[in-house]
């Protein structure tokens, strides 16, 4: 039996207010694959990830997103998450007054509920969290602090991947998870991501840097510019970009014209 895609984006257009940001995105991702999206600042990478996650700030004006055969644009953000989509935010949000632990448990239970599973029991949750924290080399004291509140940039990014490790999504979207990480943290975060790689999951990483892709080796690399994917290729494309920059791309020159 041929595999069917986990995510299919067809001619997606999206805007925020009057501003058109995505102008015809086409992207198909199969289970087991890792895709990387690169592209200059402001090209629409975060917007794409937020539209997939369901942020209502953005309106999809044309095209469609099919997730595991289902029309994703019809679903609320929480339904998308419950069905296995996870977005690691470029800028994780601080939520004073809500403890990280409480938050994570609520998230895990929401997903379990959707699957028809009972709420996680206290001991099981504790063990799960302990295990994932040690993989992420995170200080346990972060658990009792308010979500991302007062976390350093690196701690916030680790916390995103830690959440992902606990929630075990089917489709993970990582928006510049590598930005602001020192080399040791980058290794830890990358191994957290790689641990999730499996034949029935897919990962989409957004990054500016080849160094992340040394650790999380992609199957495909796409270049986004002005709301469109202007070039796709294998992992060697990222290396070429590192050499010559976006301006060196023929497709770029075309847009600039």
């Amino acid at each position: 039996m041929a595999k069917s895609p986990i995510l299919e984006i067809k001619d997606l257009h999206a805007k925020a207010g009057d501003k058109e940001i995505l102008r015809g995105i086409n992207l198909t991702i199969y289970p087991g694959e890792v895709h990387a999206i690169m592209g200059p600042n402001g090209s629409g990478k975060s917007t794409l990830s937020q539209v997939i996650a369901g942020r209502d700030l953005y309106e999809a004006t044309k095209g469609e997103i099919i997730y595991e055969g289902e029309d994703l644009l019809e679903l609320d953000p929480e339904e998308r998450a419950q069905k296995g989509i996870f977005l690691a935010f470029q800028y994780p949000v601080e939520i004073p007054g809500v403890s990280n632990l409480y938050f994570l448990k609520a998230a895990l239970n929401a997903i379990r509920k959707q699957k028809g599973e009972p709420e996680v029991d206290a001991m099981e949750f504790f063990n799960l969290v302990r295990q994932k924290m040690s993989i992420m080399e995170m200080d346990e004291s972060l658990l009792n602090r308010a979500v991302n509140t007062g976390f350093s940039g690196g701690e916030k990014k680790r916390n995103e991947i830690f959440q992902m490790a606990v929630l075990e999504p089917r489709l993970a979207l990582l928006d510049e998870t590598d930005s602001g990480l020192d080399i040791d943290a980058l290794k830890v975060v990358s191994s957290g991501v790689n641990a999730l790689r499996s034949p029935d999951r897919a990962i989409l990483v957004i990054t500016h840097y080849q160094r992340l892709l040394n650790h999380i080796v992609p199957d495909f690399v796409h270049v986004l510019a002005e709301g469109r994917i202007v070039k796709s290729g294998g992992k060697e494309l990222a290396l070429a970009l590192e050499e010559s920059g976006y301006a060196g791309l023929e497709e770029f020159a075309e847009i600039a014209r």
């Binding site: 996650a53 369901g54 609320d76 953000p77 929480e78 419950q82 939520i95 938050f103 609520a106 997903i111």
Partner: peptide, 11 residues
């Protein structure tokens, strides 16, 4: 913050 919570599956 509301979206962040929703994006983690919380209604």
């Amino acid at each position: 913050a509301l979206f962040y919570l929703q994006a983690r599956g919380i209604n």
